[in-house]
Write a protein that binds this DNA or RNA. Structure first.
Lengths: 234, 234
DNA sequence: CGTGTGATTGACGCCTGTCAACGTCTGTGG
DNA sequence: CCACAGACGTTGACAGGCGTCAATCACACG
């Protein structure tokens, strides 16, 4: 019997109104629920590798995944994060290419797997779902394009400030104002597109300027206005 | 009467097997052909502006368009080019956002306009078309993600070399080996993500190293192997 | 307690952006 | 036909942002 454990039901997963599955009917949801498999993954596990051909789509029901490309001499470039409700691995399924990123768990996660045939069949048979999916991809393309301009034109200080703001909007803060995501300095550098040492130095500067507060990997934004100014967002 | 002038017929446009319209049936093609309007645009004309809300999708039947974002102090970052058979403006229609790029003609173009309602109706009613469209967007997302890694990790020399190789693969060369696209030095810099002067200096170095030959805006690649090595593509 | 990973700080120098000056070319108007 | 303006291309000088290397510290874990 499937889902005998604590596998989430797709039906519950759709509670989110913006969810990608909102156009599925009951029959499709039941089928999806039946066909999908759900697994638990610890921090550090790799869901799929860049250059491999994924056999389906992953839907994150808990935890955080980082998606990164490996560049020169193994240096990571983090492209985006995926958290509860996000799907990953869909790009290569659709464009019929090899995976262009590696997906690695950075916060213990439970992830559902949906085989490509089921996914493609849903896309072919449910145009509402298909158009929603396309909206999602288009929005992501918009982000990537902005990112290109940022990296090409802004300096490291501005980009790091922007990354911190992004992390806040994406993961939120707890009651003490601490960013609800724990990243190593190296990971912060790999999102920003800089060297680890540069990221560390700038974080210290931000701290000296009372823009942020640091306590190990716990970061809190104490002066958001100033941080926005530093990010030079227009 | 529509199309009394030299407006291309969508039917002919689909001659390309990889074309986005290959899944449309005759009725849909006829409708598209009827509803679309086709215009001629001279170099320098702007098809749509970043931040505006496009009212439809543009299909390039002749010429070249550059799509760029405007960053710090008006500096352009060229995201991609569109040429015969390519469509532009679809992203914001689909994700229901404002245009994230400006589209400017850099080689006299004739461009067909398809109103968003027609476009969206096709997507909703023809799943083959919809899935093809999604493939297209996903492929583009893959390019953008690679671009991010490149800009973040490679130096200007490597990126410029890569840009030249990209231009060759995208636009080809004539019988004398000259790149079939004419760009200003500033535009080359704006694709590479560097200052105009840096691009010029590196082009001169490439020329000195006998990797390329220069004659004004005419660029030919004389030693592709070495150029690839310079690009450090792995 | 040794080992390993991550964080921090300093020193150093190159890549690359900026500023400025000047050359080249094209189109326009007198 | 020539003069001139304006856009584009080229080159040099210069400085500083940022990457690299290396040493040291902090902390967790077996």
């Amino acid at each position: 019997m499937k889902n005998f454990d604590d596998s989430p039901f797709c039906n519950e997963c759709i509670s989110n109104i913006t969810n990608i599955f909102k156009h599925l009917n009951q029959k499709e949801l039941d089928e999806l629920n039946y066909i999908k498999s759900c697994n638990f993954h610890k921090r550090g596990e790799i869901i799929y590798h860049e250059g491999h051909r994924p056999t389906g789509v992953y839907c994150v029901s808990k935890g955080v995944i980082k998606l990164y490309k490996t560049g020169i001499e193994g240096k990571e470039q983090i492209i985006r994060f995926a958290k509860k409700g996000d799907i990953i691995g869909y790009r290569s399924i659709l464009s019929n290419e090899l995976a262009c990123t590696t997906a690695k768990v950075i916060e213990d996660a439970s992830i559902c797997f949906i085989p490509s045939e089921s996914w493609l069949s849903l896309l072919h048979n449910n145009s509402g779902f298909s158009v929603d999916m396309m909206k999602f991809v288009c929005a992501e393309l918009g982000h990537s394009n902005s990112f290109i301009t940022d990296i090409a034109q802004k300096n490291v200080r501005e980009r790091l400030a922007e990354v911190l703001l992004y992390l806040k909007s994406e993961f939120g803060v707890d009651e003490q104002g601490i960013l609800q995501i724990s990243l190593t300095r190296e990971e912060l550098a790999n999102i920003t597109g800089t060297a680890t040492e540069s990221a560390i130095r700038l974080l210290s500067e931000f701290k000296d300027d009372k823009i942020i507060a640091l306590n190990g990997r716990k970061i809190s934004i104490t002066n958001e206005a100033k941080l926005k100014k530093t990010a030079n967002t227009f």
